[in-house]
Simulated assay, not measured.
Amino acid sequence: MKQFGRPVTMRPSAKGYYARVQGVNHLLDAFIKKTECNCQVINLGAGLDSTFWRLKDENLMPRKFFEVDFPTVVARKIHNIKTKPPLSKPIIETHSTDSLLLDGQSLDSDRYCIIGADLRDVANLDEKLKKFQLNPELPTLLLSECVLVYMTPLQSSNLVHWAAETFHTAMFINYEQVNMSDRFGQVMIENLQRRQCTLSGAEACQSLDSQRERFLRTGWEHANALDMMTVYSMLPQDDVARIERLEFLDERELLQQLLQHYSICWATKDKLNLGLSQLAF
């Protein structure tokens, strides 16, 4: 996973980036394989993420891949897609007609759709997704990476509850901060506040239990959470060794503290009895 025009380089945060990408991809790919690609994916707050293109390259395409972000972000991404053939060609290849539905705030094809919307307005989000053929009957994976933490607890709960109410067979993967009540977490919050960046949803990031509880109290059947240090220790050791050789970081204690303050939480509903609650690391 990488952002357009932004190659991955080995920086002091590379280990954390690697753990995040591999952790999210592990659960996402496992869900798609479990459904035999008969599913849909909704990337909430997708930014310039390129997961759709990775899945296309790896022959793991769901029935449809949706992305949602603010209209200004969507407009930038649509411009990138229109002007860069490596991005537009895979979309055209998976589309059955000669024309795509395209305007300044949305792009829709048979297999890929990007929508400009505010995730805090759940009713409008639901309306726009259904306009572009969202199918509530399909197994659905919802993905958010450092998105819910910028919403108030009420706003994020409304979004998570909408997902639980809309889809009877689904998984929600949420990557964001955790353990924010200790001193390290408080320093993270203070540093962001100095940059006029407020974590409005930090209340739900107090612990792994609070991360799980957000889903369990809004209609999800099962929820699990791990901090990223634990995820990092579970990744393929050959890959971890390669990262260790490429990145020289003497302050291992600092890395451990950082990874312990990010987590992956995943929740499931499984009316079709696909075994989604068994998906884990």
Rank of each mutant, 00 (worst) to 15 (best):
D108A: 15
L119C: 03
K128Y: 04
K128F: 02
S106A: 13
L154K: 13
K128L: 10
S156G: 07
S144N: 11
D108E: 14
N124M: 06
C113N: 07
D108S: 15
E165H: 06
Q155T: 11
K131P: 00
S156P: 04
C146I: 10
N124L: 08
C146E: 05
G104Q: 13
D108V: 13
E127F: 06
E145L: 05
A164K: 05
L101W: 11
Q133H: 14
S144Q: 08
L134T: 03
D110R: 10
S109Q: 06
L107K: 03
N124D: 12
L154C: 06
P153G: 08
P139F: 02
A117T: 04
C113I: 08
E137D: 15
L159G: 06
V147R: 04
L125F: 00
K128P: 00
V160I: 15
D118V: 08
I114Y: 01
Y112G: 03
L141M: 10
D118E: 09
S109P: 07
F132L: 08
D126G: 00
E137V: 12
Q105C: 11
K130R: 14
Q133C: 12
H161W: 08
V122T: 12
Q105N: 14
Y112D: 03
W162H: 11
T152W: 02
D121T: 07
D121R: 08
T152S: 15
K130L: 12
V160K: 04
C113V: 14
L142M: 12
L159F: 07
P153E: 09
M151E: 01
I115D: 01
K131L: 13
S109F: 04
T152H: 03
K130W: 00
G116H: 03
Y112C: 07
D110W: 07
M151L: 14
L125G: 02
L100Y: 12
Q105I: 12
V149P: 06
L159H: 01
L141Q: 01
T166D: 04
T166V: 09
Q133S: 15
W162T: 00
S157Y: 10
E145D: 04
L138H: 11
K131Q: 13
Q133E: 14
N135V: 06
S109I: 06
H161Q: 14
L101H: 15
L102W: 15
N135Y: 06
R120G: 15
L125T: 04
P139G: 02
I114S: 00
L154D: 11
R120A: 14
S156V: 03
D110S: 13
L129M: 10
Q155F: 02
L125C: 00
K128D: 04
R111M: 13
G116I: 03
D108Y: 15
H161L: 11
R111E: 11
N124A: 11
L142C: 13
Y112W: 08
T140S: 13
